[in-house]
Design a protein around this nucleic acid. Structure first.
Lengths: 215, 215
DNA sequence: ATGAAAAGCGAATGACTACTAGGTTTCCGA
DNA sequence: TCGGAAACCTAGTAGTCATTCGCTTTTCAT
C-alpha cells in the first residue's frame, strides 16, 4: 500500500468538500488578503497551534506550498492575521477623541460591530488565551496590546474626569481596566451562548453609573 | 536510516530531559490523580487540542500506552481534568450560603486562591476559549457550566436584595453576569502580566458599589 | 502460594503537521 | 514579443499525533 496514494486521495476529498476549486492565478494584493481572511476563520475556530496551514490553503483553493510563497512561515501568517484584525477594529474607536465620552460611545459601537463578526471575536478570545503561555509566538503582541489599550482607555476616563463628567470616587485606571476585562469576559459567554446576553447593554450598564452624563 | 531508531532516540532524550524516571508501579487511585495533575499542567499551557498525551505521560514518568490504560482516550482524560478542577474550586464558594454576602466573600476568596494556582487559571481561560467552538469536546460542558454559575450567582444577588442590602437599581441577573465576565477578563490580563493588576481588589471595587453593606 | 486482575510496556498504524527543493505556469513591463 | 519575476505546483523530509495490539510485570485477595 503506497502511502502517496492515500495522501492524494485524502487531499482530493478535502478539495471537493471544502473551499474553492483551484483556478487561475490571482492578483498579488488580493490573494494575500484572501489568505488572511481564511486565516482568521481557521485560527479563530482551532487556535493558532492546532489550526493548520493546509486548512487555510484549502479554503482559498491553493496548495500548502503555494500559500507559503506569500507568507514564509506560519508565524508570519499569524502576524498578518493579527494586523488585519487590528486595522479592522481600530476604525471604530478614536482614543484621542476630544470628548472622552465620544470615545466611550465609539467603544460601544465596536462592541455592537463585534456581534456581527463572530469570527473576529473568536479569534481574539482564543488567541489571547493561547498567548498567555510565554512560549506562544503572539505572547509579546498581546502583552503589549493590553498595555496599550488599558493605557489609552485610562486617558479617556481622565479626560472625562477633567471635563467634570466622571462620577466621584471613580479612578480612571481602574475603570479602564475593568471595562476591558468586562467586555472580554462577556465575549466568552456570548460565544458559548449568544442568546444568553446582549454585550452592548451589559457594557452600557457598567459604564453609565460611572458617568455624570448620558451615554 | 530506520525510522524506528530515530523515534526511540527522540523518546529517550525526552525522558532524560523531563519528568521522573520510570519506576515501580503505583497504587491505582494516586496514579490517576497524578496523571490528572500533569494533565492540568499540559492542557493549561498548550490547550487540549495541541497538548499531547505523550507530554503528560512523560511528566508522570510513564509511557503513552500506560497512560491510556487509565483513561481510554484523550477526551476521557479531559473530562477527568475538568472534574478535578471543579472539585477544587467548589470548596471555596457556597452559592447557598444563607447570607448572600457571605457567598460573595467566598467568591473573593476563590479569586485570591486563584492567584496562587496559575495553572488552574490558565486551564480555565484556555479551555473555555477553545471550547467556544461547537466541535470542541468540552463545548457542552462549558455552556452548561456558565449557565449554572450565572444562575447560582443570580440567586446570591437575589438573596442580598431580599435582605435589603442591594443598592437600588441593581438587577441581580445583570450583576451576576457582569461579575463573572469581569473576573474572567481580569484573569486573561493577569495571566499576560501578573504584575499589572490585583484581581481581588479589582473585583471588590466592582462589587462594593452594588451593596449597602461592607464586603 | 497462587491465580486473576490491574498496571505497564514496546512497537506499529495511519493519520496529521510545518516546511523545503525544484520545477512549471502565468503575468507584466520594457 | 520576450524575458524575468512572481505565483503556484508536486513530491518529499522529518517529524508529531492518538490509538491499538500483544505482551510482561506487579499487586492483591483468597
Amino acid at each position: 500500500m503506497a502511502p502517496e496514494s492515500l495522501r492524494s486521495a485524502a487531499r482530493i476529498e478535502r478539495m471537493t468538500l471544502t473551499g474553492k476549486p483551484r483556478g487561475e492565478y490571482a492578483k498579488t494584493a488580493s490573494r494575500k488578503r484572501e489568505i488572511l481572511e481564511a486565516g482568521i476563520d481557521v485560527f479563530s475556530t482551532s487556535g493558532f497551534r492546532s489550526g493548520s496551514i493546509r486548512e487555510i490553503a484549502d479554503k482559498v483553493g491553493m496548495s500548502q506550498a503555494g500559500l507559503l510563497h506569500h507568507f514564509t512561515n506560519k508565524n508570519e501568517l499569524l502576524a498578518g492575521v493579527l494586523e488585519l484584525r487590528d486595522n479592522r477594529s481600530r476604525a471604530y474607536i478614536d482614543f484621542d477623541a476630544p470628548l472622552g465620552v465620544e470615545a466611550l460611545r465609539g467603544y460601544l459601537g465596536l462592541i455592537e460591530y463585534n456581534t456581527s463578526v463572530r469570527g473576529l471575536v473568536e479569534l481574539h478570545c482564543v488567541l489571547s488565551a493561547e498567548a498567555t503561555s510565554h512560549a506562544h509566538p503572539a505572547h509579546d503582541y498581546f502583552v503589549e496590546r493590553y498595555r496599550y489599550v488599558v493605557e489609552s482607555m485610562t486617558k479617556v476616563f481622565r479626560r472625562i474626569a477633567d471635563a467634570g463628567m466622571l462620577a466621584p470616587g471613580v479612578v480612571p485606571e481602574n475603570a479602564a481596566r475593568a471595562l476591558i476585562a468586562l467586555t472580554d469576559g462577556l465575549q466568552v459567554q456570548w460565544l458559548l451562548d449568544s442568546s444568553s446576553l446582549d454585550m452592548v447593554d451589559e457594557a452600557r450598564r457598567y459604564l453609565q453609573p460611572l458617568l455624570l452624563v448620558e451615554l
